[in-house]
Design a protein around this nucleic acid. Sequence first.
DNA 1: TTAATTTTGACAAAATGTGTCAAAACAAAT
DNA 2: ATTTGTTTTGACACATTTTGTCAAAATTAA
Lengths: 109, 109
Amino acid sequence: MSKQISSKMDNLGETLRKLREEKQLPLRTVAAYLDIDQAILSKVERGQRKLNRDQVVKLAQYFQVKEETLLVAWLSDKLVYEVEGEQLALQALQVAEEKIKYTNLKPKE
Amino acid sequence: MSKQISSKMDNLGETLRKLREEKQLPLRTVAAYLDIDQAILSKVERGQRKLNRDQVVKLAQYFQVKEETLLVAWLSDKLVYEVEGEQLALQALQVAEEKIKYTNLKPKE
DNA sequence: TTAATTTTGACAAAATGTGTCAAAACAAAT
DNA sequence: ATTTGTTTTGACACATTTTGTCAAAATTAA
């Protein structure tokens, strides 16, 4: 069977909420750690706001999870947001992948 | 052999420059059609500025090429820009693809 | 060298992003 | 059922980014 696909698995907001609830922490506490208002964190967890890269990295530390996990969720959320509502989303993603693979292949120039 | 990969093939800027040069048009003319300054178009063709969706659609009309072609180039450029410099770019793109496939699968809810 | 085109960078205006604050809504709770 | 703690909402302010103009500099063609 191939990789499981579920929003719970990959969305940053839901992942963060789950982590926070596991530890029974109020928004207030986690928000304070990030030095932002709890209102923002509430919105982040429900996908209405984005965090910046540094905040995501800090949260990986805080919750003791692999930075990579949260960063991929964060980045892919941004990508999905970018192509939201586009018929050609999938094709664009595939072309973007090829472009990235290509530039990774020859990093010179 | 698989799909050819080259920046010329997929980048919006280079595609537009090629189309414009084929028709021997100065930046001024195409820019006027879009109702923007030629400076912007110059930057677009060299990848220093982005167009918006409507402008891309207008240019497909103008140059008589498939809208889809330019839109995929435009969208994928945006995606590449979004993950520029990220180690996890490829993984994020793949996850984003899965998310899109998934939501396309069940458009309800 | 002139004339046309393209490129560059300083600037302005508009749009978006990022955060605060306080009130409203919700949940637990016994 | 009111209290206490938490979460959600929306109005607001400030900062940053986008999107464009303009004119001068650089480049290309004649």
